[in-house]
Design a protein around this nucleic acid. Structure first.
Lengths: 105, 105
DNA sequence: AACATGTGCAACCCTGAGGTTGCACTAAGG
DNA sequence: CCTTAGTGCAACCTCAGGGTTGCACATGTT
């Protein structure tokens, strides 16, 4: 599974998108803190953060006894570019097909 | 669930991404035809196409006894723009936080 | 030292998504 | 009219993903 795939999978989950919102809002936060803002357990949060980390959408660092997470906008920006490219490729395809159809009739 | 969410969910599935590839490649295809190119049943394909349709990533039209599907690049392009916006918003947040931290120290 | 807070790990539960099979229905072609 | 190819519907199966609980471990505080 390449990175774009991982990003898409990561973003497909409502809770994970909420987590990203919270992180973007706060700049940095621990799993325990985040758990207080959402209707799920800390453990669930941790799992989600792991998925987000695999997708490169968040990074973490240890600060004493807690682990702080933050967003990584570059990855999201990259994913956006990838999707954009894909869209352009489709458009080109469709344009070509349309053109051929018109010529051939 | 708004449209971007639906798009993300739709794209999170490998088989659906393959379907989109095939459609982009062929310009137009029916569920039965697509099923021949993938290791799953026509029914599975139909379900996936329904999800893609809900997300606005494909459109369909009846042609005699078959239903032909095609990609809709605008939606994907829109999704790409939305993600890009989100990334920018995060970047702005992080920049602000960083600035405040420097000023306040 | 004792306590509180945050994390890590593992087992477990359960729903939904992806997939299949079977059959009825409809349209095209001989 | 009969056959063939494509679709639609519904019941069913299976498993990974999201979630929980319980407990051990580590760090900070008094």
């Amino acid at each position: 599974m390449n990175l774009l795939d991982a990003v898409l999978v990561a973003l497909a989950e409502p809770t994970r998108r909420q987590l990203l919102d919270l992180l973007a809002e706060r700049g940095e936060a621990s799993a325990s803190t985040l758990a207080q803002a959402l209707p799920v357990t800390r453990q669930a949060i941790v799992k989600h953060l792991a998925v987000l980390d695999d997708a490169g959408l968040v990074s973490s660092r240890r600060a004493g006894r807690e682990v702080r997470y933050r967003t990584r906008p570059e990855r999201l920006a990259q994913a956006a570019r990838d999707l954009s490219e894909l869209a352009t490729a489709w458009e080109t395809r469709l344009a070509t097909i349309k053109r051929l159809a018109e010529e051939g009739d």
